[in-house]
């Protein structure tokens, strides 16, 4: 009986020692945690974090839109200028007699397509 108690006590002592040894291993491992490398963390930050959604634009029209707007404005003026030069080129004598004095009247229909501009101005 005494031997049995001695053996039981020895086993309990051993169990406690083993538990303490295992705890020492846990402590050692916990104190040396596996850590990701800096390279991996950098890659993770670059690749894994998706870009946040873009904010709504509150900026002036893009340079392309501005360029197009300027083009159409300029082309309108240029068209009028070219038309004037063309009239002067094909009918220089008509322009000599054309004036906007209060005595002259020119009907709007005169400037419609197909009208005889020369005849109208010579009236």
């Amino acid at each position: 009986m005494a031997v049995g108690r001695k053996n039981w006590g020895t086993m309990m002592d051993k169990e406690k020692h083993d538990d303490a040894a295992l705890d020492a291993l846990f402590s050692a491992a916990a104190a040396r945690p596996e850590r990701p490398s800096d390279d991996f963390m950098a890659r993770l930050a670059d690749q894994a974090i998706p870009a946040p959604p873009p904010a709504a634009p509150a900026t002036p029209p893009s340079s392309r839109a501005g360029w197009l707007t300027g083009f159409f404005a300029a082309s309108g003026l240029s068209g009028a200028a070219v038309l004037g030069v063309w009239i002067g080129f094909v009918m220089p004598e008509a322009l000599d007699t054309f004036s906007l004095s209060t005595d002259d009247t020119v009907a709007l229909s005169t400037f419609l397509p197909g009208a005889d501009l020369g005849a109208a101005l010579s009236e």
Partner: peptide
């Protein structure tokens, strides 16, 4: 809600812990 800095901070908190667990 679009805060990238918040995502980076969360990454720094979570990723090392998950790595430690998975590596073990």
């Amino acid at each position: 809600n679009g805060d990238a800095a918040a995502g980076r901070e969360l990454l720094d908190r979570i990723a090392p812990r998950i790595f430690g667990y998975a590596a073990r």
